[in-house]
Simulated assay, not measured.
Amino acid sequence: MSRHARLAVAGLNPGYAALVMATGIVSTGLHLFGWSLLSDILLVVGAVALAVLLVAYTWRLISFPQRVVADAQDPARGFGYFTVVAALNVLGMRLALEYHWLVCAVLALVSVPLWLVFTYAVPGAMVVGHRKNPVLPRTNGSWFLWVVGTQSLAGATATVAAKDSDLTSSLAPLAVAFWGIGVVLYLMLVGLVTVRLLDDPVTPHALSPTYWVYMGATAISVLAAAAILALPPKLPVLVATRHVVSGLGFLLWAFGTWWIPLLLAFAARRHLVSNERVGYDPTLWSMVFPLGMYAAASASYGRATGLDFMVDIARVEVWIGFAAWIAVAIAMVKAFIQPERKHSDAATREDNRHG
């Protein structure tokens, strides 16, 4: 392998699988509104990206284990690993729309041990690991990826449960349990991250795109709620929790909607007021994902509960998510091409000098 590839893997952002999350959920939103060709193209892109990233993550784990552990102990980067869990399940739920239930089930099954490891290892390393500085001053929006990963499991589990009658009664309680864990995690983290924003001076650079996961975590909770509400209402666990899931689902949607103007203000503060250059960064996919998820969640929950105005909002929002995906994808391609171009130009100059 080339030195360039080794360096790229060594420095791989733990949260790069947000690329797959964003691509998968924008594909889902387009599919929900009948834009099949665009949806299928993004589905293929997401599947290829997932395959490449799984190879890269595995390579990094084998060749650079110290860096993997260091990232897990880093409060600003560690929760990025939950993007792998969410990527598997978001893509699985999209494939379920094409009746690939078995693939969705396999991807969900693979994500469970990953979720368990990350759930206990990442926060555990921050609590009991050797640390020179306090953890809370380094919190950011990426912490909500813990919620996103958890709710992706809830949604995928409910999706499989709805399509396999033999597994419905056993998987439905598990889906509701994952959903409940995700909601409680969100309530816990929203306090911690908000205190961080209010307690210490926040530079414009610190207002990274990861803060959009504030809203994305509520949106995927709403999507998972819609998947749970699609289960047979006479199931004992649904009899006990249906009203809670439905009610909290709408409240989370409302809270996520409330966040959007504030997040836009964060972006304006960073790029318009402080004139910080807009360049490609892997965390930009953490902004695309919430935009796409808000559309998919609004459409799914609105249809499940008869709230047509949510579907109408989603009909517009899906194109905002798609436009954001296009913009970040173009920026990513340019970022990949430019280093190669610089290297080629340097080599050409060297040849001319010796020619």
Rank of each mutant, 00 (worst) to 15 (best):
V176K: 04
V176I: 10
V176M: 02
V176S: 03
A177N: 07
A177E: 13
F178R: 03
F178T: 02
F178D: 05
F178H: 03
F178M: 06
W179A: 14
W179M: 13
G180H: 02
G180T: 03
G180C: 01
G180L: 04
I181E: 03
I181N: 01
I181Q: 01
I181G: 00
I181S: 08
G182C: 08
G182H: 07
V183M: 10
V183S: 02
V183Y: 00
V184E: 12
V184D: 12
V184L: 15
V184K: 10
V184A: 15
V184H: 12
V184T: 15
L185V: 08
L185P: 01
L185A: 15
Y186N: 09
L187S: 12
L187Q: 11
L187R: 00
L187A: 11
L187P: 02
L187H: 03
M188Q: 14
M188I: 15
M188W: 11
M188P: 00
L189P: 00
L189C: 01
L189M: 08
L189W: 05
V190Q: 06
V190E: 13
V190D: 09
G191Y: 12
G191H: 08
G191C: 09
L192W: 12
L192C: 09
L192V: 15
L192A: 13
V193C: 11
V193H: 04
V193D: 06
V193R: 01
T194R: 06
T194G: 08
T194M: 13
V195G: 00
R196Q: 08
R196A: 02
R196Y: 07
L197S: 06
L198V: 00
L198M: 05
L198D: 04
L198W: 00
D199Y: 14
D199F: 10
D199C: 07
D199A: 11
D199K: 12
D199G: 00
D200F: 14
D200S: 14
D200M: 11
P201L: 07
P201S: 09
P201H: 14
V202N: 10
T203I: 08
T203E: 15
T203M: 14
P204E: 03
P204K: 04
H205F: 10
H205T: 15
H205A: 15
H205D: 15
H205N: 11
H205G: 05
L207H: 05
L207E: 10
L207C: 05
S208W: 02
S208L: 11
S208H: 10
P209Q: 12
P209G: 13
P209R: 13
T210W: 02
T210S: 15
T210R: 05
T210G: 02
T210N: 09
Y211Q: 11
Y211C: 04
W212Y: 11
W212C: 11
W212T: 01
